[in-house]
C-alpha cells in the first residue's frame, strides 16, 4: 500500500478496509478525513459570500459530525475509517434586513413564511426574494417566468396601479383583487434550494398560511449572509485544514524515520 501520495484518492473511493496491520497508516487517514470536510466548508462559505447581495438569500451552514466508534461498528461491510466525519448542511432561515427600494413591485415578508410561486411545469416553489414584475399578460411574475400565487391563484393586475397592504391585500386602481398570504411547510429542512433564489416544495406537502406575517411594499429582504461570520468561518476552516495537513505530514515523517532509520546499523 502506498503511504502518502495516494491517501486522498483512497479516501475518495473508500473501499479498502483498514486492517490490523496498517494501523500505522490509519492516523494518516484520520488526518486526511479531517481535511476533506474543510474543503466542503470552504465551498459553502464561498457560495454564501458570493450571494451577499442576493435578495432573499438564506445562508447555508455546515455541521460536521464525528462518528463514534460504536456507530461505525454498526455499518455493515464498511471499513471503520470511512466517513469518520459526516457532513450535513442546513439552511439558516434567519430573516435578512429590509432594503428600501421604492419599487412598488418589490415585496418583503416581515415574519415567517414565503411567497408561493407556480413554476412553468406546474409545481410549487417558495421564495423570500420579492423581486416581482408584471409580465406581458398582466400577471405578477418572478424573474424567469414563475407566477406569484395569491389566495385565488395567479394574480392578474393588468396595467393598473398596484398597492399591496401590510395584510397582503392586492389593490389595483383602488379595487381589491386578491390577497398574498405567506405560506410555509411544517418542516423547513425538507425545502430544497434549486437556484434562482427558489426553494422547491416537496411534493404532497401541506402549505400552511402564516397569518401573523405582514407584507412590506417597496422593500426587499437582503441576503442574511453576515460577512464577518463568513470571514471567521473561512479562517477557522482554513486553519483546521492546515492543522490536519501538518498532522498528516508529521505522521509521514515518523513513518519515514521508522522505515529508514530504525534498525539501521551504525
Amino acid at each position: 500500500m502506498q503511504l502518502v501520495g495516494g491517501t486522498i484518492l483512497l479516501l475518495a473511493q473508500p473501499v479498502l478496509k483498514a486492517s490490523a496491520e496498517d494501523t500505522v497508516i490509519k492516523g494518516i487517514y484520520t488526518s486526511a478525513s479531517g481535511m476533506l470536510p474543510r474543503i466542503k466548508k470552504q465551498e459553502l462559505t464561498a457560495h454564501n459570500i458570493s450571494n451577499v447581495s442576493t435578495p432573499g438569500y438564506k445562508r447555508d451552514a455546515l455541521f460536521t459530525k464525528e462518528l463514534t466508534r460504536a456507530e461505525s461498528r454498526l455499518a455493515p461491510k464498511k471499513s471503520d475509517w470511512e466517513e469518520p466525519m459526516v457532513n450535513e448542511d442546513y439552511t439558516d432561515y434567519t430573516p435578512g434586513i429590509f432594503d428600501k427600494t421604492d419599487n412598488p413591485l418589490d415585496l418583503a415578508i416581515d415574519g415567517d413564511g414565503f411567497f408561493t410561486l407556480e413554476l412553468p411545469d406546474g409545481t410549487r416553489a417558495f421564495t423570500r426574494a420579492g423581486t416581482f414584475t408584471v409580465n406581458q399578460d398582466g400577471f405578477l411574475a418572478f424573474p424567469g417566468g414563475p407566477l406569484l400565487l395569491g389566495e385565488g391563484g395567479p394574480i392578474e393586475v393588468g396595467s393598473g396601479k398596484v398597492t399591496i397592504s401590510q395584510s397582503g391585500k392586492v389593490d389595483v386602481d383602488g379595487f381589491e383583487f386578491d390577497r398574498i398570504v405567506p405560506m410555509t411547510v411544517s418542516d423547513l429542512t425538507r425545502l430544497e434550494k434549486i437556484g434562482n433564489s427558489l426553494f422547491a416544495v416537496p411534493e404532497g406537502s401541506e402549505l400552511i398560511p402564516v397569518t401573523k406575517s405582514t407584507i412590506r411594499q417597496g422593500y426587499l429582504e437582503a441576503s442574511n449572509v453576515d460577512i464577518v461570520r463568513e470571514m471567521i468561518d473561512m479562517i477557522i476552516s482554513f486553519r483546521n485544514y492546515e492543522a490536519n495537513a501538518r498532522a498528516l505530514q508529521a505522521q509521514d515523517q515518523s513513518l519515514e524515520h521508522l522505515f529508514n532509520r530504525v534498525g539501521r546499523q551504525g
Partner: peptide, 19 residues
Amino acid sequence: AVGAEVPTGLAVGYGTRAA
C-alpha cells in the same frame, strides 16, 4: 453509512448570477 436516514443532506451551490 450507518444505515440511518440523513435528515438534511448536503447541497453545495455554485455562486450567484445577475437575474
